[in-house]
Design a protein around this nucleic acid. Structure first.
Lengths: 186, 186
DNA sequence: TCGAACATGTAAAAGGTTACATGATTAC
DNA sequence: GTAATCATGTAACCTTTTACATGTTCGA
């Protein structure tokens, strides 16, 4: 039920369309949640059917089919209830760490490339978060989410830069020929 | 195809059963990936059918049906190929940050509880990672994944402790009565 | 005028979890 | 003797992504 909660949350900030909500997921929520149109539009339909959202059409000159959603009183209550009931957990899914775990199986150049890609990724995330930290007043809670992102990416970037040379230097390239009688007995 | 890659990776370390693989996911991989039996056993079956795993039964006195899997040469190659081809990304899914984003909607006691739960969670993860960092020799890559976890959880725990008092002090409890004419115009 | 951004939606497929079903072995 | 751990597997369900289908509006 997560996309629904995300949509309720987005609409608690301001009324908006499915498209607006997606933009919010790509900006303010980007470092801790995500969702695609294929899950947002059905979620909005369902939430409206459940009486948690109101919808007014904006057929004005500009956009023919714009559907502007807003929270109902019930919707706001449902959001608070879900946030309260939800266990406060988090889960990382990192293909990068998976790769690092098996770095000893890879050619050095591949490792070098992946480290470079990840550095660029961390840099981008960090500079984005810093830009939004500065440019507006946020509630204390929102500021906390941004600050956590900044500290986490700063730590990750620092470690990556710290260890890169050593990782590459120590890295032993595995012989190209793999076979059953590999000498590797890890 | 992620569970398959995870299984190939696990079996590149040592031969093992589905059960062993699950244990590994709950220990060494726990801070960056996860999978349940319901996905592991079908994945192993499929990988065997694809010729990437060998399976020998251990019907010894102890365990009647123990299926010990091992990588074939092709399986090892497939693992390396997948690690190489896979874009090196990561994604956080944090219900805690979602909750913090909307902290202004919640009663103070709920916020206090969630912060306490999260502190305990971060402490547990951190102490687990510290314990495995000390107790064995790891490859440089594995050490990197543990070190990143330690630094990240240390940062998160530090920020949480730093900000908690201020967050709770500044926190304005929202009146119990919610209705359409709420004064909240964020 | 042409591409980017705005805007909505569906259907199929992928991927995974949960719950169930079963049973042996080990440590207390 | 009884609870935890070891051990395998299936089926139903849930959620989400991907790919498709369509059309407008705005800025360069």
């Amino acid at each position: 039920m997560s996309v629904k909660t995300l949509c309720l949350g987005a609409l608690s900030l301001r009324d908006g369309t499915g498209y607006d909500i997606k933009k919010l997921f790509e900006s303010a929520f980007s470092h801790f949640h995500s969702a695609s149109y294929g899950s947002i539009y059905p979620a909005l339909k369902q939430l409206q059917a459940d009486g948690l959202l109101d919808c007014r059409l904006e057929p004005g000159a500009k956009h023919p089919d714009r559907k502007l959603f807003s929270l109902t009183g019930e919707g706001r209550k449902a959001l608070v209830d879900e946030l309260t009931a939800m266990p406060a957990g988090e889960q990382l899914r990192s293909d990068f760490l998976l790769l690092m775990f098996f770095a000893h199986l890879l050619p050095t150049e591949v490792l070098r490339d992946k480290l470079a890609q990840m550095e660029a990724y961390y840099e981008d995330e960090l500079s984005y978060l810093k830009s939004i930290a500065d440019c507006a007043e946020h509630s204390a809670g929102i500021a906390f989410t941004i600050e956590q992102g900044i500290q986490v990416y700063t730590a990750k970037l620092g470690l990556l830069r710290d260890r890169r040379e050593q990782l590459l230097k120590d890295h032993r390239e595995i012989p190209k020929e793999w076979s059953e009688n590999s000498p590797c007995t890890d």
